[in-house]
Amino acid sequence: MATPNTPLWEVFIRSRNGLAHKHVGSLHASDTTMALQAARDLYTRRGEGLSIWVVPSSAITASDPSEKGMMFEPAESKIYRHPTFYEVPDEVGHM
């Protein structure tokens, strides 16, 4: 008999105060309480975090990798958005 599927969750952990939550992996659990407990057991066995978020994987919308060119090209062609685009005379020193 096939085992019924248990929902998938994505796990995010804040490692220290002042840092953002970062994706660390995923796990299966039937509800939020069990997902949080499993995330604690699975991803923080060595004091990796101060805070955990669990998010149903089905709630995530991702960009399409095949459209990555169209999606990100507008940013890549605008080199004038970076400080190195501008010339500052040597005499002025660090700016």
Binding site: A2, T3, N5, T6, S26, H28, D41, L42, R45
Partner: peptide
């Protein structure tokens, strides 16, 4: 834990956890 990280990695390829375990 290592088994679970790895099942999660395998699942990103489209297989389900239950199917793999079965």
């Amino acid at each position: 834990g290592h088994g679970l990280y790895l099942y999660a990695a395998a699942e990103t390829l489209g297989a389900s956890r239950e199917e793999l375990v079965d």
